[in-house]
C-alpha cells in the first residue's frame, strides 16, 4: 500500500494512475466513515462517489502543509453531513445536531442485526451530537490524531480530545443501561 506522499506525487505525474492508487488506499476508510454517519448503504455509496469526484476535481487545491488524510476525510464528512441535512430539509446538518433518522438504524439489506452488541454500540454513537460522533468515530475506528480530526471539524485538538472523552463516557453509560 502506497503512502500519502507517494500517492500525491503519482496523481501529479499521472492523474489517472495516481487516482487509482488513491482509491485503493482510501475507498474503504472513506466509505466506512460515511456509512457510520449516514447508516444506509445506498446513501454511503452515493456520498462516497461524490467525495472522490470532489477529491479529484479539487486535488490541486490541497495544501501540502496539511494532512492529506484529514483533507480527504473533511470532504467525506461534508458529503455525509450534506446528505443528512437533505433528509431533514437543511443544506447541511450542524455539528451540534443529533440526526434522529439515524437513531433508529433503518432497516437495510446490508445490516447484520444478529450482532446485538455492535448494533447497540452504533445506536449509542448515533445518540451523540454529530461533533462527538465525528470525534469518536475518527479516533476509535480510523485512528486519526486529534490534530487531524480538528482539521476535519474545523476545531482545535484540545476541543476534539474533550469531545472524544465525553463521547466515550456517554457511550459507556448508554451501553451499561441497554445491555
Amino acid at each position: 500500500m502506497h503512502n500519502d506522499k507517494d500517492i500525491i506525487k503519482a496523481v501529479q505525474a499521472d492523474p489517472e494512475h495516481g487516482f487509482r492508487l488513491l482509491l485503493k488506499r482510501y475507498s474503504e476508510p472513506v466509505y466506512w466513515h460515511i456509512r457510520r454517519l449516514v447508516v444506509a448503504h445506498d446513501d454511503a455509496q452515493d456520498a462516497s462517489q461524490e467525495t472522490f469526484v470532489r477529491v479529484f476535481r479539487h486535488f490541486r487545491q490541497y495544501d501540502s502543509k496539511q494532512s492529506f488524510k484529514a483533507w480527504v476525510f473533511k470532504i467525506a464528512t461534508n458529503e455525509a453531513l450534506r446528505l443528512l441535512g437533505k433528509r431533514s430539509g437543511k443544506v447541511m446538518v450542524s455539528l451540534d445536531d443529533t440526526p434522529e433518522e439515524t437513531l433508529n438504524m433503518k432497516a437495510d439489506e446490508y445490516f447484520d442485526y444478529s450482532d446485538a452488541l455492535s448494533v447497540k454500540l452504533q445506536q449509542a454513537v448515533h445518540a451523540l451530537p454529530v461533533k462527538q460522533q465525528l470525534a469518536f468515530n475518527m479516533r476509535y475506528y480510523d485512528e486519526l490524531s486529534y490534530k487531524e480530526i480538528a482539521a476535519v471539524t474545523g476545531s482545535t485538538a484540545a476541543n476534539v480530545k474533550m469531545n472524544y472523552h465525553v463521547a466515550k463516557e456517554k457511550i459507556v453509560k448508554f451501553m451499561k443501561s441497554n445491555i
Partner: peptide, 26 residues
C-alpha cells in the same frame, strides 16, 4: 460493526468513480 456491503462492492465503486472522474477534469 453491523454494517455490510454487497460482494465485490469496493472494486465496483472504484471503477464507477474512475468513470466519473474521466468526465470531470481537475
Amino acid at each position: 460493526m453491523p454494517y455490510q456491503v454487497p460482494d465485490g462492492f469496493f472494486s465496483s465503486i472504484e471503477e464507477k468513480i474512475m468513470q466519473h472522474v474521466a468526465d470531470s477534469p481537475m
